[in-house]
């Protein structure tokens, strides 16, 4: 990946983070920690890796994204807004009555959201069905599914992974957001999921473990998932919950936070400054 592309994707990641803060600022609270941890992955996916057409969001041949950790909706809405699926201002209605931008992803409400999620674990099976469907329909499409490390407590996740490997769904790409925290605390203290990369490998996935907040590392890891073959792919992303906003990173209980507008404005100014530093 050349420097120019890298710079563009890093800028996109900052834009996604700014969008997340804008959404949460407008409502006063939201799932900020787990939204921020996946912004770099989303920048590489929507900025480079995925075959998409924002003007034709239902294009059957497109690549699809299932955010199985549905509470990261704010991050998905932000990247979709930046990519032009709908007017940017709309995301500021997050969780307002009658909004098209609910806490958890809903394909019936939000243009560009490929699947409804929210009950943890279910997106893994939905994505497996979508990947199988694309394969049976002869479409050259991949399905990316973002799964939380806390979410991996759910048994359904492992049923789905077993299925994807058994059915040789090489168009099924798991991005495991290993941000080490879940609602009640550290994953290792709540229900230790152990070595996730070893588990994915044991389940029959072509597995890579990378810094999930490093644009270049993520881009390389995703490139590898293009090659097809007989195995589904897993990228275990070492991430920081709340990444990109030091105050959030340093807050222990950062799954969902109450945040006032003044605080958000300060963070937005910092993100804007980082964005401006890239120049044109």
């Amino acid at each position: 990946m050349d420097d120019k592309t890298k710079k563009e994707l890093e800028k996109l990641a900052l834009q996604i983070r700014m969008g997340v803060v804008e959404e949460i600022k407008a409502r006063g609270f939201g799932h900020i920690g787990g939204s921020l941890s996946i912004c770099d992955a989303l920048a590489v996916l929507y900025g480079r890796e995925m075959k998409i057409d924002p003007k034709n969001p239902q294009w059957p041949e497109r690549d699809k994204l299932v955010c199985s950790k549905g509470h990261a909706g704010p991050a998905i809405y932000s990247v979709l807004a930046v990519k032009g699926y709908f007017p940017y201002e709309e995301i500021k209605t997050l969780n307002q009555p009658g909004t098209n931008f609910p806490s958890h992803c809903d394909k019936k409400k939000t243009i560009g959201v490929d699947m409804t999620t929210g009950s943890l674990g279910q997106g893994t099976s939905l994505a497996a069905g979508m990947a199988l469907g694309d394969r049976l329909k002869g479409r050259d499409s991949r399905v990316f599914v973002i799964v939380g490390d806390g979410e991996s407590n759910e048994g359904q996740v492992w049923e789905a992974f077993l299925f994807a490997a058994a059915k040789k769904l090489s168009n099924y790409v798991v991005l495991l957001d290993n941000n080490k925290k879940q609602l009640d605390g550290y994953v290792k203290d709540v229900l230790d999921t152990g070595d996730l990369a070893a588990k994915m490998k044991a389940f029959g996935f072509d597995t890579q473990a990378v810094d999930g907040n490093d644009i270049e590392a993520m881009a390389q890891a995703l490139e590898r998932t293009r090659q097809g073959g007989e195995k589904p792919y897993a990228i275990v992303m070492d991430t920081v919950k709340g990444k990109g906003i030091p105050d959030v990173e340093q807050t222990m209980a950062n799954h969902s936070m109450n945040i006032d507008a003044e605080q958000c404005d300060k963070w937005l100014a910092d993100l804007q400054k980082a964005y401006a530093a890239f120049g044109e």
Binding site: P60, L126, M130, L132, K137
Partner: peptide, 11 residues
């Protein structure tokens, strides 16, 4: 879940 995903794919 897989059935629901297949439904979304047109099955």
């Amino acid at each position: 879940g897989v059935a629901a995903g297949l439904s979304a794919s047109g099955f």
